[in-house]
Simulated assay, not measured.
Amino acid sequence: MFGSGADIGIDLGTASVLIYIKGKGIVLQEPSIVAVHTKTGEVIAVGEQARAMLGRTPQNITAIRPLRRGVIDDYEATEKMLKYFIHKAIGPRLIKPRIAVCVPSGVTEVEKRAVEDATRQAGARKVDIIEEPIAAAIGAGIDISRPCGSMIVDIGGGTTDIAVISLGGTVVNKSIKTAGDNLDDAIAYYLKRKHNILIGERTAEEVKKTIGCAFKREVPVEMTAKGRNLVSGLPKNVVLSSDEILEALREPIDDMVEAIRDVLEMTPPELAADISDRGIVLTGGGSLIYGLDKLITEKIGINAVIADEAISCVAVGTGLFVEYKYSKNKKRNPYV
């Protein structure tokens, strides 16, 4: 019934939690959402079950995101969420697992300590903290141990992390709090301003995934969004086009492109030349917005490519890090 210890990697994201287990790959991917009883503090639901409650809970239950902008906003809820996900992924264990958890590159030591403490309280016997760009690069298949520059742009729910990596470490990096959640907010604000309709975050996310774009589509697409009319207070449907959403997303997308430009301007010339030859690698759910790679290529002048399995790159890289770190064959270990 009880298995042995396990080495696992966790992508503790603002929008989703992904868990990687050695020899099995990604075994869990669920929203970073917790439903809590407002009076007792009891956790009612976690992950997908809690997400289904967003915008639909009675007054005594609230569905929250315990992580905001890549850092812990509600420590107790984060600990309970982690404990639930770890148990769901690996089951009961006599030996506690060794866990690597990723954090945005711009977090403080205090914020790193909070993640480490929450992971220990959730059941880890040993915790390693690694930065998201390093994990994303490993998960994307980049050999970060080589003496050449690689640029990684990881666009998550709460942060966009940009880094130039060489010889196993970060040379230049920048983390901005403009990412997937901001795209959702921009869509909701646009509908409120242009169509006088109020939508929830689930609807905004659906619009983003369905017709969202960073580059003009050759053939525009449409979808119907449902919300509440701000004048009458009654339900209302509105037909949206991808051209409208392109306009809605222009500002946050431009912020991301500008941050990439800033990092390149700080990059040493030799590494910048490597990046010009090798291109920019995009990871994270936000990288899947239609045309973002084309826009970056056009604006920056360097080819941008989306990594295979972009959403899971950070989790896979985190898992590979802990897998190699505790490998008996240390010669195989390029990351430690």
Rank of each mutant, 00 (worst) to 15 (best):
E109Q: 13
E111G: 13
A114P: 10
D117P: 02
A118N: 11
A122L: 02
G123E: 13
R125V: 15
R125I: 13
V127M: 09
D128L: 07
P133V: 01
A135H: 03
A136V: 03
A137H: 04
A137S: 11
A137V: 07
G139T: 04
G139A: 00
A140K: 00
G141H: 08
I142Y: 05
D143Q: 13
D143L: 15
I144S: 11
S145N: 07
P147N: 07
C148F: 01
G149A: 06
S150H: 09
I155A: 02
G156S: 13
G156H: 07
D161N: 14
A163Y: 02
V164A: 06
G168N: 01
T170W: 02
T170N: 06
T170F: 03
N173E: 14
K174D: 09
A179N: 06
A179G: 08
D181G: 10
N182G: 13
I187T: 10
A188C: 08
Y190R: 11
I197R: 02
I197T: 13
R202I: 09
A204K: 02
E205N: 14
E206D: 15
E206Q: 11
E206Y: 04
K208T: 09
K209W: 07
G212T: 10
C213V: 14
P220S: 04
V221Q: 08
V221I: 12
E222T: 12
T224N: 14
T224W: 12
G227Y: 00
R228W: 15
